[in-house]
Design a protein around this nucleic acid. Structure first.
Lengths: 184, 184
DNA sequence: GTCTATATTCCGATAGAC
DNA sequence: GTCTATCGGAATATAGAC
């Protein structure tokens, strides 16, 4: 992937988190990169093509992190996962799912499919992390690991949304209580 | 408030939940109501004015519900609150906060202030409900009622977002586990 | 691979008649 | 209170030169 193309994807990712997919334009990308709007269209013919690439990049990052964290105990893995969200919170940004889910109905079928894949991958990773962690006595919780994974993910997602509106303490309070609940 | 004005607000509310604030246009409102785009501008000069009215309507509804539920025990009040979200889920819609929070940075200061007020009111209501409920032995949970309220609200919010992407079972699983955790 | 230039469409918003 | 008509601008996107 060319350097310009990488910069475009990286900036689009930032804009989606900051303003939402439907609120940013090609101009928001071409101007800071000091290229013309047509140059962005060369790399990504339509806005949905660009959106799909952003989600695919996130999928690659998730896979990379999962691999990198494999050697850690499950509570350590979970802390790393929380750390990713804390970083977003400190930047005042929301997560990709939290930004794209409300816009889901306005996305192309191909991009919807990618967002669906992203959600599935995250839920599967979290489910496995909690399941293994409970088996190794590093987590303690009631109910199925799948249901618990949904709860944890939804808490992290919304903690960033609430932090936008109520200030960053929302993330701190939610994540701390969440870890305490899991006995981690 | 005139009948037309009420219909505009009601439709705008629906559109914000369905497509997001930045993805709907005055045309999406004027066409179904069979009036001209200028008629909408007469009632709400700018889009932000319309958005503010939608949030204010939601605030009035919250206040009305809180009053209506006052006679119920706290677990009954919580179930009513969950019921509101279940209804949105069945309609395939997200909640107002879940839709507007990602767009927060693109809103006018006046509208941001309204969204902030809405978030505060919801958190305060939930905090009080959990606090009183615990005192009356109807809920059992660790930590402060305020932190727990943030967790419950973020779970409900994101359960609708996840249901968009993963199907309505996400809401069912999250809300059931949530009630179980509270011992309600 | 990036440019200039432009097509097309749609948007939010306003002026002024009725 | 709703209309017609229109403005000014911005959006996505394309054609074709370099």
């Amino acid at each position: 992937m060319s350097e310009t193309k990488e910069k475009i994807v990286s900036l689009a990712d930032k804009l989606i988190r900051e303003k939402g997919f439907n609120a940013f334009s090609y101009k928001d990308i071409s101007e800071p990169l000091q290229v013309k709007n047509a140059a962005v269209h060369y790399h990504f013919p339509t806005k949905m093509d660009l959106g799909i690439e952003v989600v695919e990049q996130e999928l690659r990052l998730l896979s990379l992190n999962a691999e990198k964290w494999k050697k850690l105990p499950e509570d350590g893995q979970l802390l790393k996962f929380f750390g990713v969200f804390r970083k977003h919170c400190n930047n005042g940004n929301v997560c990709l799912m939290g930004s794209l889910a409300p816009d889901y109905e306005t996305l192309s079928p191909a991009m919807r499919e990618k967002v669906h894949e992203m959600a599935s991958v995250i839920v599967e990773w979290m489910t496995s992390c909690l399941e293994q962690g409970r088996k190794h006595k590093r987590f303690h919780f009631k109910g199925s690991a799948g249901d618990r994974a949904l709860l944890v993910i939804s808490n992290l997602q919304s903690s960033l949304l609430l932090s936008r509106v109520l200030g960053p303490s929302a993330f701190t309070r939610i994540s701390r209580q969440l870890l305490e609940d899991l006995g981690a």
